[in-house]
Design a protein around this nucleic acid. Structure first.
Lengths: 135, 135
DNA sequence: GTGCGCCTTCGAGTGCACTCGAAGTCAAGC
DNA sequence: GCTTGACTTCGAGTGCACTCGAAGGCGCAC
């Protein structure tokens, strides 16, 4: 933070890589990795020192990326989506298509996991009963 | 299948590795890999030719393994569980503990994915509305 | 008896997503 | 002026779970 920021508060809140990591739950290593792999919308701004400064928009986008990632979207596909957004207006239908396809996959996978979970819970039920009768 | 099996039907239904793969949805490569990695309860029986013959119990266990795997249990932990079952009676409490821990992880992860999915669906809603107004 | 196809073992290769280490730079505090 | 610590780049390493390929064996159909 600059002296001006300390005195008057930040004009626009921007974050160091460590703060961005804190804010997004990623590591600094992963943040740099995402950037060089083209998952972010633009190269992150730099301070005069060359250090990255993450804007609120950057953080918002990274949160979207983590949502896509933690629902199982491959890096490659997140990059495609980022490329569409980067290309600007006019490809909303494509973006929509990509997200809808992902949504459908996630829903299906969620249902499958739920089914498997039920079977596991049934098994747990068996063990609980047998453990009861044993003790 | 032997001549006797063709004539009189199989005495005990046992499957070749290809049939077991078909029955479990795994590849023959993966079935061998699971066996050498200690995920199965015992070494699978062999025909006189040396070919593997999977019993119904084998297939049942492999189905359990795939349930655990596809809910995200690491190979290492499936192996631990298999070791407990292999050790025989007396460790049911441990098995139960392992399954319950897994169940809780799965439940939590399911809830997280559901939350992320909602956020993605919200985003889809935005795109759908903007695409409507555009066309 | 010969070709076919399925089986065997072994070890190496692949793809994904990080994850880490080394070597160097820069601003601030003592 | 010197240390400290957070940052930089680059490339290599890791862990996981398969996945594949090569080389060879067995038994059945023709």
């Amino acid at each position: 933070m600059s002296v001006a920021e300390v005195v008057a508060g930040p004009v626009v809140t921007s974050l160091s890589i460590a703060e961005a990591a804190e804010a997004t739950g990623l590591t600094t290593h992963t943040l740099r990795y995402y950037e060089r792999d083209g998952l972010l919308l633009d190269a992150v701004d730099r301070a005069s020192s060359g250090h990255r400064r993450y804007s609120q928009d950057d953080v918002g986008w990274i949160r979207m990326v983590t949502r896509l990632r933690s629902t199982g979207m491959p890096i490659r596909e997140v990059r495609q989506y980022a490329e569409l957004v980067r290309a600007g207006d006019g490809n909303e239908a494509e973006r929509l298509q990509l997200l809808v396809a992902h949504r459908d996959r996630v829903r299906q996978q969620l249902a499958e996991v739920a089914t498997h979970l039920e079977a596991i819970e049934y098994k747990i039920g068996l063990y609980e009963r047998s453990t009861c009768t044993l003790t």
